[in-house]
Design a protein around this nucleic acid. Structure first.
Lengths: 219, 219
RNA sequence: CGACACCUUAUGUU
DNA sequence: AACATAAGGTGTCG
């Protein structure tokens, strides 16, 4: 498809090549996990050195066997930002891959909650591999799925527990089917707790927010 | 005493001076209520222009005669607070006087409704002047009196409309006689609407609640 | 079913 | 220290 995907495929192939050659070259078992070339290969493939040692010799021809589950699951970290709330806002997402994929967007008039949903929604639209973990610091987004708030909403005609209309229904109706599909997990993390990818997603969101602000309020 | 009190005494004296001078100056009766200086003086003293016109000429020397009842009725503003509900709770009340009287108390294990009743009950126990207006943001407390819920309860042996025992009967049995006595009026106000005395009563309740919490759960 | 109140949680800001 | 955006709940009455 696009350049990052091609690059990623190439990197994975090179990693498999490296591992095959190391096996063929008779690298000793105890040195295996300490070789930097093996370490790089494992990082790209998302597997441990032990898992790499178990790979068949022809893995460079056949690809990663399905039986070898990557030990580092794919994650998309998401975040939203909103100046003033309500006000101009932005969202951003970034994957935990060696060469992270990223996305961002903004809206000149929105709320913090819409931006948090939009971050997760656009992440799931853009990153289609499964299984995947969507990471968010918003209990609003995570609890909707993990505590099955959406089940009650759909049952009561999109009314919340106070019998008022559920807010941001348009985004939820897009997000819920994607987030409840097979292989999608939601995970909450505390914001501003130093998680590097949470900070990276925040910076994407803030940049998009500021762009939306500049666009929405031209001076 | 303190600075605000001194300031208030000074303001009241200036108001009396103004009224005395207006009388001495022969201000016409029909103009009297429309003069902004008189209006300001009346506001400070809590009396009507008509009452001001009836003041003796030497009121600026003798002070406000006791016979002139302030036209601003006495009010007690009440509020309750309860952490968790049920949980540790507190109540508070404060009068609308120039030097407000206040009261508060707490309970390490109670409900929001008990605290709302307790606030009004303790206010009526402590402030014995009549007439008096008890102000609460709880329809539970106000409607019991103004919609005469208590009449039905007493008639049915303290059963509510679902034929279950009326909750908080112990407090109601103390409160109802006091609240239905001559000169006692109940008034409802919306909570969190910026009424300064509602906020003041809330702060008293919250402080008492936090004290009860600290006392009830010593670490 | 309606009403009022009391909270709990997280995020976004000013 | 204050407000907004949102969800969940209990306490109580008619």
């Amino acid at each position: 498809m696009n350049e990052p995907d091609d690059l990623r495929a190439t990197a994975e192939q090179l990693a498999l090549d490296t591992i095959s050659m190391a096996k063929a070259g008779g690298m000793p078992d105890d040195y295996w996990p300490r070789d930097p070339r093996i370490a790089r290969a494992c990082l790209v493939l998302g597997i441990t050195p032990e898992e790499a040692r178990e790979l068949p010799a022809d893995a460079y021809l056949t690809g990663l066997p399905r039986a070898v589950t990557p030990s580092v699951p794919l994650e998309v970290w998401t975040d939203g930002a909103c100046s003033g709330n309500p006000g101009p806002g932005g969202w951003g997402w970034i994957t935990n891959e060696a060469e992270p994929r990223k996305g961002s967007g903004g809206d000149p008039a929105t709320t913090n909650q819409r931006m948090e949903i939009a971050a997760a929604l656009n992440a799931l639209k853009s990153v289609t591999e499964r299984p995947i973990v969507v990471v968010s610091d918003s209990t609003y987004v995570v609890n909707c799925i993990t505590k099955k708030w959406y089940v009650g909403w759909q049952r009561n005609g999109w009314k919340n527990s106070k019998k008022e209309p559920v807010a941001n229904r348009d985004l939820w109706e897009e997000f819920v089917p994607l987030a409840t599909a097979a292989g999608v997990t939601l995970r909450w993390v505390k914001g501003h707790a130093g998680h590097p990818l949470n900070e990276a997603a925040d910076q994407l969101a803030v940049a998009a927010r500021d762009a939306a602000k500049a666009q929405g309020a031209p001076v």
